[in-house]
Design a protein around this nucleic acid. Structure first.
Lengths: 356, 356
DNA sequence: AAAGCCAAAGAGACCGGTCTCTTTTCATTT
DNA sequence: AAATGAAAAGAGACCGGTCTCTTTGGCTTT
């Protein structure tokens, strides 16, 4: 009597139709919410569906409609607060618009990214949001576009790819920060980033494949040149890919006699590690070292001293990318949008005059 | 000549078969990697597929095989470092096992969670990992199980649900922390959590629907009773759902004459906010207030003083849940596993003797 | 009352794969 | 050389929806 329905094999429209005493086509009209049906039949079918505990099969639906109702998202690492916040922005917009999100981490590795795109293509996602690991290596993205799949780029653009792109004004932010440090008398300013080059050494900004970071370094070097500081390329350090790497690099750098008087950290994970190293080496911030970090992570306001940061609209980055993509999915045509969101320097207490 | 293939409409096995001059069934055997085919035919089909830039349609494949190769993950909020790390654990294992992940945020809201499950069921995910918003309201999960879908619970269990569950030994951790505070002479110990009750007031642990948090509060209250501290229920504060809420609650609490001498923060977001409030109110840690937080967030080691925390194996939580699920998907039968991962108190410098 | 029209319902193809069942091919056996 | 049997290839149904095309039935029109 009170038994649970023994339905293990799934209930289909045909089953519902049979139970309601109508044709499959009619039941489908009611359940799919399309076409025209009389009220009496509608009720009968609805009742039958409820009685049978009918659940639509989105896969089958996607099969014929050609729309899967999903968007694929490929980011470097969801564990990084930057990406988790951006993804939050994406999922919020996607859900609102009736899409679900398939998430894949690339680990900033191009082959992994390619595999991810392939998988998402096979799953027939309706659109793609990607934060490309390397801007120089986007053939797989070009292919996706060619096959007609709407794509939006997140945080990292590509000059050769004509697609919707949402980035922050990284160059401008880096310029502002650098200018300020120079004005405070700093001459030995190090820039520390997770991006890597094949030989782990930096020569020119063109070697940096991550667009956002390349623009920052370009801004940094540009302002240095304006100020007649030469050879600042030597102060750019690449390959701070893990906290351990960062730790070693920062420690090595800060132990030399000609150590930097200021460090610009390219993300909050690096900023945090530099902070830790200063503790260990008993270097005062900002007395012995000025520190500026990209990404206004929550902890930066609570350290002693609090850290001056570049606040990026991270949630907005994801939100905007998703909005652009949804518009495309709803049929909007037109040229690719390239949106640059403003950043803001949050002045706290980790920078000061350079001791001359 | 060098023109890009004008393939906008998708290439199917039938197209490949035709081009290779074989039957659809044979082409499918090659492309699907099943059945038995001669080497010559295999090569012909492979060549044709490459020439046509054939991409398999996973949807169609799922249709017949009944497996979609995806697992659905429902968590409270991907923006929370706790979940983003757990999700990282899940996605790593899933990818390894050949599954992709569909991620949905519930916002700790039961209706949203129900909708998420419905969506995932419709998308025919092969399995489900859920961090239920309320343990008391799991009818939708029970239904999913009844329909034969493997499910694993993350961080929060349910006594009434007989499924694979991975949690941390929250009760034990809370007991240890509470015992230590009491030994240091603390009597006014507040527990602060984001979990809420309908009227935002706490009466008994049974009102708390989030299992992990309920177990912690039970541990906290239990040790207090052992120590003959009565009425400690009044020191449990619920509803710290946003940083702003938390801020107000902590400030109000710490401004009273009978303010707590110690606070246990139920997650790192709350711990951070309490820390900020102490700054504002010029209360010294640990001089005026001892602070312990759950979740060993990265910043906790870098504050002044560094914060004593309960380290949970967050990545491992996700990893283990995903492993259990994958085993089920590979056909493993048997009783539900209930795995309890160990936590560890990381002693830093935010707790001290209570000033009597 | 016959013609005309439109809403409502039914029949069946189709999406792109998989898979069972049948037929063909070809090497081996006696 | 005819019989045997396994491997290779083909034919076509099927998964669960959507959607086009056709048929049915009730109501208006003159």
């Amino acid at each position: 009597m009170d038994q649970s329905p023994p339905r293990n094999t799934s209930v289909t429209v045909a089953d519902v139709a049979h139970k309601a005493g109508v044709s499959k086509a009619t039941a489908a009209r009611v359940l799919g919410g399309y076409g025209t049906v009389s009220d009496r039949v509608r009720e009968a079918v609805t009742a039958a569906a409820r009685a049978l505990d009918y659940r639509p099969n989105e896969l089958a639906r996607s099969m014929t409609t050609g729309r899967s109702g999903t968007i694929g998202v490929v980011v470097g690492d969801i564990e990084n607060p930057f990406f988790s916040l951006a993804v939050r922005g994406i999922t919020d917009v996607a859900r609102q618009a009736g899409f679900t999100v398939i998430l894949i981490n690339s680990g900033e590795d191009v082959p992994a990214e390619k595999a991810a795109i392939r998988t998402l293509l096979a799953k027939r996602v309706d659109g793609l949001i990607v934060s490309p690991a390397k801007e120089s290596d986007v053939e797989h993205l070009r292919e996706a576009i060619r096959s007609g799949l709407p794509l939006a780029l997140l945080d990292r653009g590509s000059d050769t790819l004509d697609v919707d792109t949402v980035i922050a004004d990284d160059r401008h932010a880096a310029e502002g920060v650098t200018r300020r440090l120079i004005a405070l008398g700093h001459r030995r300013i190090a820039y520390l980033t997770a991006c890597d080059t094949p030989d782990h050494r930096f020569r020119t900004a063109a070697d940096i494949n991550t667009g956002s970071v390349r623009r920052r370094i370009e801004g940094f070097l540009g302002v240095c040149r304006e100020a007649n500081l030469d050879g600042m390329e030597d102060w750019v350090h690449v390959g701070a890919v893990t906290p351990e790497h960062t730790h070693r690099m920062a420690a090595a750098m800060l132990r030399t006699p000609q150590r930097p008087t200021a460090i610009i950290a390219s993300d909050s994970l690096i900023g945090l590690e530099v902070f830790k190293v200063c503790r260990e080496l008993d270097l005062g911030i900002p007395g012995d070292l000025s520190l500026v970090s990209f990404h206004d992570a929550d902890w930066t306001s609570v350290t002693t001293p609090p850290v001056t940061v570049v606040r990026q609209p991270v949630y907005g980055l994801g939100e905007t990318a998703a909005k652009l993509l949804v518009e495309r999915l709803n049929g909007k045509a037109g040229a690719a949008n390239r949106i640059v969101l403003r950043t803001e320097v949050v002045d706290r207490a980790s920078i000061a005059d350079a001791r001359v």
